Computed example of a mutant assay.
Amino acid sequence: MIAASPPIDQRARALGVLRMSLTARCNLACPYCCPDAVDPPGLLSLEQQLRLIRVASRLGAHTLRLTGGEPLLSDRLLPLLEQVALGRATPGNPLQGLRQVALTSNGVLLTQERARALRAAGLERITISLDAVEGEVVARMAGLRGGEPAGTRLIQQVLAGLEAARSAGFDPAVGALKLNAVIQRGVNDDQLIPLAMLARQQGLELRLIEFMDVGNRNGWAMEQVLPAAVMVDRISRQWPLSSLGRSPGGTALRWRYRDGVAAIGVIASITEPFCGDCNRLRITADGQAFTCLFAARGTDLKPALTSDDDLEREICALWQRRLDQYSEEGRGQAAFRTSPHAEMAYLGG
């Protein structure tokens, strides 16, 4: 392995988070995400995924987040976690630099048995998505046929997944279990208070995400964006909040309830972008590297996956020429947001 120092991009940002997609497929069809029915050809092997994680860790990545599509659809998930855990326990292995291994899921497939297996394999944090608490709205947000009954079944599955995670030791009190919700004005913004109430009852931190213009299929329009500031104001009128700010390199502006019951975070990529300290590198299931969620195309890392040294040089070069600050440049400029983007499910969010 060549001697390495953490790469710094053109805006003085260091690599900190590796988001690795295991699949572009999903068992839901959320219209704001628009997942593919099949995976792209040329999926990375387990050995290639491990090499990517190992090299990224050596270059400063302290957090690994496994994503999809729906990562629980991948038969690679458990073996990958087990190998990462082995590396983290081995003196001198670059994987010892990982401080956190996390997963984003819709929770539908998260049974008690699977949650225990994930925990035993070294997974430390799970974020589960649910965009409403009323069956009809959930069905609409998840792209389900069958209306209210189908949505109600989905809610029950997600709640069961949350309970399975909690029972397996993913403790929301220490941030190991969180709830995500994408909010669209005029689509599910009436679910904001009910979602907050559910999260408070469950002792979960609720992450509220502005509807983002990722991809070309979701029909994004600025009129459907409910600003994070409006979300915070609505919730604070019901339960007063105090600001906790945003951690360096973090995505969420966090707020705590003054009565001490849990917290909320708002991810305001559209109205309050945080490009200035973005530290995330995204790797798709077929080995494309994206340095921005809103990018049109990635860099194929497969030719460099023959050795750690080759891959390290490729990632360093990619990161050192990085200039991305899409959301800050396009803030308030509707015309700027008409360029092609890669799809959300392909990128891994």
Rank of each mutant, 00 (worst) to 15 (best):
A296Y: 05
A115R: 02
Y257D: 01
D300N: 14
M197K: 06
H341Q: 13
R51G: 05
G68N: 09
L177M: 14
L73Y: 13
T271M: 13
V182M: 12
P79H: 11
R19T: 09
T63K: 15
D286R: 08
S247C: 07
C34L: 06
R13Y: 04
G203Q: 12
C30P: 13
T299I: 13
A262I: 09
D309P: 10
T306I: 02
G161Y: 03
W220F: 15
R125N: 11
A199H: 01
G135Y: 01
E136Q: 04
L192P: 10
G147F: 08
L103H: 00
C275R: 10
R58E: 15
S105Q: 11
P340V: 13
S167M: 14
T306L: 05
G97W: 02
V158I: 12
E223V: 09
G260T: 04
R116P: 12
G203I: 10
P172G: 07
P41G: 08
G135P: 03
L144F: 05
A228T: 10
G265E: 02
D286G: 09
V84G: 05
R58S: 15
Y257N: 02
A221M: 01
L15H: 00
M20S: 07
T299N: 09
T284W: 00
Q100W: 12
E329V: 15
R153M: 12
E328Y: 02
G265N: 03
Q320W: 02
L73D: 14
P31I: 00
Q157Y: 14
L311I: 02
A304K: 00
R99C: 14
S57G: 13
R234Q: 10
L198P: 06
S269N: 07
S21R: 00
F211K: 02
P31K: 01
N218S: 15
P35W: 10
L95C: 04
I264A: 11
Q202K: 15
L301Q: 00
L226W: 08
D39Y: 01
N188E: 10
L253Y: 12
F274Y: 14
L28K: 06
L154W: 12
G151R: 00
P71G: 10
L52R: 06
T251D: 09
S57K: 11
G249N: 14
L18N: 00
M344I: 06
E124N: 05
R119L: 00
L18C: 02
L123Q: 00
G97K: 09
T104L: 05
R11Y: 06
M1N: 08
L281A: 00
S339Y: 13
L159M: 06
G219D: 08
P227F: 14
R280C: 07
L162A: 13
A262M: 05
E329F: 12
V108C: 03
M344Y: 04
A345V: 02
A345N: 05
L311A: 05
R11F: 10
P94D: 05
Q224V: 05
Q49D: 10
T152S: 09
Q10E: 14
S236Y: 03
L177S: 12
R166C: 10
A221I: 01
F336I: 11
E124C: 09
G203D: 12
N27M: 04
R337Y: 11
A150M: 14
D309E: 15
F294Q: 03
L43T: 08
W319R: 04
L46G: 00
R13K: 07
T299P: 06
L44D: 06
